[in-house]
Design a protein around this nucleic acid. Structure first.
Lengths: 220, 220
DNA sequence: AACAATTATTTTGTCAGACATTAATGCGAC
DNA sequence: GTCGCATTAATGTCTGACAAAATAATTGTT
């Protein structure tokens, strides 16, 4: 839905300050209900992309960038933005790994091992392991004892996912890092904070490396 | 709406993994329509706070922290989270200031000066200057030439605003930094990147300092 | 004619109700 | 006991109506 809206806006060449058609016309134009249009617009409103006023209608407050996968330029921009997000997350995730090694309860440890096993299984089965990955990292964030880390990371990632996830949604990104998850989980369960931090850093850097490769592939 | 839901959840003592009542019951309980409840839950879903499943219902995926101003402990947690957000934004905002000094067009420069004048006017008039402040920084982000900076900052801030803005919404936070905005705007308009970066850093650090003061006040 | 007050209109915001879809659960046949 | 089917309880979607607000138009007054 957000994607269709994005495409429609790009096709019209709308930019910051411009007004969108009334909700009901958008709905008719896309052949969906006003409910869905409103949901998408509310999401954009929360992200600060549009401003809504009663009689005045809805206006763009930020530039809308499509995640159309076929455009090399767009893909490159998205790769850069992903690297940036990653750079912000990196120190947080590392801290989470270290804290989890120290603070995890017995219950946390069981969940962490269960999640990492799910991740490995999902990966070896050739499925889309992204959700399993998210759950695994979620377990770490919960185990670290400070809910603020988890909230911060999730909000940074979440805001981006909605706009930027599509092109990198294909399962092969981050694949090299998967095998490192098991040793890291074990380090956390054993309470080895130093090893946990080091392995988390290695995992994140492998992902970064793979995104960079995609960029090169695209740019050449 | 989100606040009421937050309070209701706290009152019930729900924590991560627990299930919320069905939407229709929440609606009845709060005396509002299911539409509004769904809107609020969708917002939380986008922020990664709840997970929704058809038959299984809605479960908490992250701890919900009320922004009730009367609780010292909560306020302290929120102050910490604000400091963290600030630490993430700091390097980005500084980069934006530097880039804006180099890349701003004549049009951008006029807008920046207009916005900083609005900010000063709003402040001397004793009004709530937060929106003017946001517009000013938005102008800088637009002028810096790379829309990704603006999007990143806005999304980091936006995700937090919804949950954390209330307690620090009172206009006095950041007041000492306001007078520094005019010199910074001038530095940018004059193309002095170094000065722009330095002044932006000073502004951000003044805000940090004020948040710290609030924390001390609360903790003593 | 200029300006103020009032009315009309357009658009978002909210609501209620119905139905579709999905996934857990219970039950029965094998 | 286990597989499959029906049940069912929840979210997801659609429709239509009305409320609220802000702009636009119109009317009244000086």
């Amino acid at each position: 839905m957000l994607e269709e809206l994005t495409r429609a806006i790009e096709a019209r060449g709308l930019s910051v300050g411009d007004r969108l058609p009334p909700e009901i016309e958008i709905a008719r134009g896309l052949g969906i209900s006003r409910t869905k249009v409103r949901e998408a617009l509310t999401s954009w409103q929360n992200m600060g992309i549009v401003i809504r006023n009663k009689k005045a209608g809805t206006r763009l407050a930020a530039e809308v960038v499509s995640n159309a996968i076929h455009l090399p330029l767009t893909l490159k921009i998205e790769a850069e933005s992903m690297l940036r997000t990653h750079a912000v997350r990196r120190p947080l995730e590392i801290e989470v790994a270290g804290l989890a090694a120290v603070n995890a309860t017995e219950h946390d440890r069981r969940i962490i091992m269960a999640r990492v096993r799910e991740l490995m299984a999902s990966h070896t089965a050739g499925e889309d392991w992204r959700q399993a990955d998210r759950r695994f990292h979620g377990a770490l964030q919960h185990a670290c004892g400070n809910p603020l880390f988890g909230q911060l990371i999730q909000q940074i990632q979440q805001g981006f996912n909605e706009v930027y996830e599509a092109p990198f949604g294909r399962p092969h990104i981050g694949e090299t890092s998967i095998p490192k998850h098991l040793p890291m989980a074990e380090a956390i369960v054993q309470g080895n904070a130093e090893a946990a931090r080091r392995l988390m850093a290695e995992i994140l850097d492998l992902v970064t490396e793979e995104v960079r490769k995609v960029m090169v592939t695209i740019n050449v």
